[in-house]
Design a protein around this nucleic acid. Sequence first.
DNA 1: CGTGGGGTTGATACAGTTCAAGATACGTGG
DNA 2: CCACGTATCTTGAACTGTATCAACCCCACG
Lengths: 228, 228
Amino acid sequence: MRLEHRQVVRQLRLFERVDDETFEWIAALGFLQTFPEGTVLHDQGRETDFFFVVVDGQVEMTIAHNGIEATVAIFSAGHAFPLGAVVLSEKTPGMARAASLARVLMVPASAIRDSIGKSPSLMRALMEDLAGQNRTFVREIANQKIRTGSERLASWILQHAGAAGIVNRLPFRKRTLASLLGMTAENLSRAFATVEKHGVLFRGSTFTVVDMDALQALAKPSELIDAA
Amino acid sequence: MRLEHRQVVRQLRLFERVDDETFEWIAALGFLQTFPEGTVLHDQGRETDFFFVVVDGQVEMTIAHNGIEATVAIFSAGHAFPLGAVVLSEKTPGMARAASLARVLMVPASAIRDSIGKSPSLMRALMEDLAGQNRTFVREIANQKIRTGSERLASWILQHAGAAGIVNRLPFRKRTLASLLGMTAENLSRAFATVEKHGVLFRGSTFTVVDMDALQALAKPSELIDAA
DNA sequence: CGTGGGGTTGATACAGTTCAAGATACGTGG
DNA sequence: CCACGTATCTTGAACTGTATCAACCCCACG
């Protein structure tokens, strides 16, 4: 891995507190790779040859079964996958695909597994990322069971919008967002129409919150379910 | 903790490989407690004073929001909660309640947090449980998004039934199962009726698989979504 | 220009919820 | 051990949310 890359990766939350020796070892064996949107990084139900860490962009993890594909999570910078599978030496639960142009660190899974045993600081970093992902999953399950489609969209907007009045851009395709929010693309279209009546303005792939109170009234945000 | 309890706890998957010194320390500070069904073990959105490990019975974790309560997971013997919150020193995402008569090990959260730094074997055990829970959550999200209510019930039955012909007992109330499967109690009743047409016989709170092939045709099991 | 992918809109069907009432199981006290 | 009362579960009917299928729009690209 080149020096400038090394510095970017070193500053990721995941590696911040990892000891130098272990980091150098990982940096020596790992490499940065840039993938165009749609590229499959790994399949579902396969051995885990690589440990991936998102450096830039978004990677979606999906599970396909019985002709239906469900998005389980979208990983952004600083998060690792398929973390659980690497740690337990199990098969990947889902498939990973670039949801936007994405820069990703790839490290041989065996190198990570070896290093865990040698470096408590690495193990701690992985444990904490695992705990964070856990929390995200718990929230997602509750979100899914408690809220209606339009409410989930409203909540997503709340979490991805800056202050009121600022123009934001969708980080990936609408159909990806639909799958993440657990609905069909058609339904997302209708949800956009609903949310537009509650203080959000859509223009193509950008959106602006014009009435924060109205949006919150629809989303009914909760620190238990929504990310901080 | 009394000696006979200590031996039971020692044999839990979670503690199997933890070093003696750390285990003795945890055993000295922890205590076993038996809770009747319905007892609240901890609230949602609170500081994590205790680290719990299920020794016997079932504990359900739920999140309530906007008048709706959703079951996120049910923990059985050998699993710890609220694991992520203890590790990250964050608030509990949900509330924990005994879903059946349950025997639970309680250890002060601070003791666990201290021990993690001192004992790599404990950290590894927690990391691996976290990874396992992660997998369960991923499966649950996919299960929820991909399958219909009756299919989820059929899958649940498949996973909790012994061989065909054996009489099984529901481990907790039907309304708890409904919430776990992400549906109302009324809907679960109707789902029972549907599943009964596909090779399962219900008698009160017991069930028997009489036609495994028919049940599998309905559940369409997958090693990706369903537990091993 | 056409062509095609992504997105939207409309009509219809189905899964799931809600509310209300009825049936069943279960623990308690007589 | 039975009778009663309460909690749990079931059934029914109306309604909401979401999926499905098909047509259409729009813009980017060759």
